[in-house]
Amino acid sequence: MREITLSQAVNEALREEMRRDETVFIIGEDVAEAGTPFKVLAGLVDEFGTGRVIDTPISEPGFVGMAVGAAMTGTRPVVDLMFGDFLFLVMDQLCNQAAKIHYMSGGTLRVPMVLRTNLGATRRSAAQHSQSLHALVAHIPGLKVALPSSAYEAKGLMKTAIRENNPVVIFEDKLMYNDKAPVPEEEYLIPFGVANVKREGRDITLIATSSMVQVCEKAAETLAAEGISAEVIDPRTIVPLDTETLIASAKKTSRVIVVDEGHQSFGVTSEIASRINEAAFYHLDAPVMRLGAMDVPVPFSPALEDLTVPTPEKVVEMARRLCAGEMIHAA
């Protein structure tokens, strides 16, 4: 199968959906000729014109609010939010408006809108361009949240998101845009709420989102060499969350580590750990462990920033100790 980058996969998904449905359009900062700073949208304006690939002023609440109104009246906007950190600028439009309009209107209005943005540290971009804020929006009922872990997921989840009748926030890992993965030539979509068992195992389950899937796959390789069989599961969407698949794996292996790049406290790792504890308590040999980003603003200095994120080494260390029967006490 051909391999393309995550960036190309997103671009292809948008191109296909814009050809399929003329009500799909892109709106955001420097999305047209510039194709975004990451060049993800390069070339789309040549095919669809500036009427459907719309450059905006630097006014995030404004263009997100307009996308909400456009979605309510018969179009399917794909909003480009240049950095996930800018979510804080658009919280009212996303969480008070987009997320609640279908409910508040008793089901008479709907907001079929996609907000594309990104997450991920270690790009040396410091505290305001490095956050992974997906848990923040996952907390708000009415939004769906997708976290592609490779080019394959990025394309399939984007196509599903665009056809969804609800607001969907997709977080791409900004360090993965140039990572290649096999992506079929023929059309496919990835359903929301269906986890992907990336690697089967017997001894421990590693539940990982976004780029943490790669981290856990590397960890699983190392563990395999030591005789520990790790199962790696990618939920692909955290809202909806395929709890069933996660619980089944926890019951099978009896040990679980949840790995996610959001801050560890009050985050995705906590939520998934709780769901497993509630449903699989008597099947567990150890507490479900969490490995998230440190609860610090992301520092600039590489020497500090690298300490803040989960790594294969940290996952391996924690897995070894769990499998050895050690009780690990979180700090």
């Binding site: 609440p61 404004g62 263009f63 997100v64 609010g65 307009m66 996308a67 909400v68 109104g69 456009a70 979605a71 309510m72 009246t73 018969g74 179009t75 906007p77 009212d92 439009q93 008070n96 408006q97 309009i101 508040m104 209107s105 209005l109």
Partner: peptide
């Protein structure tokens, strides 16, 4: 398209409807 309990909250929505 609805009343809005956030003061000014529907300004984007109205403008987006015009964009549609």
């Amino acid at each position: 398209l609805g009343a809005n309990a956030i003061v000014g909250g529907s300004m984007g929505i109205a403008t987006g409807a015009a964009l549609t």
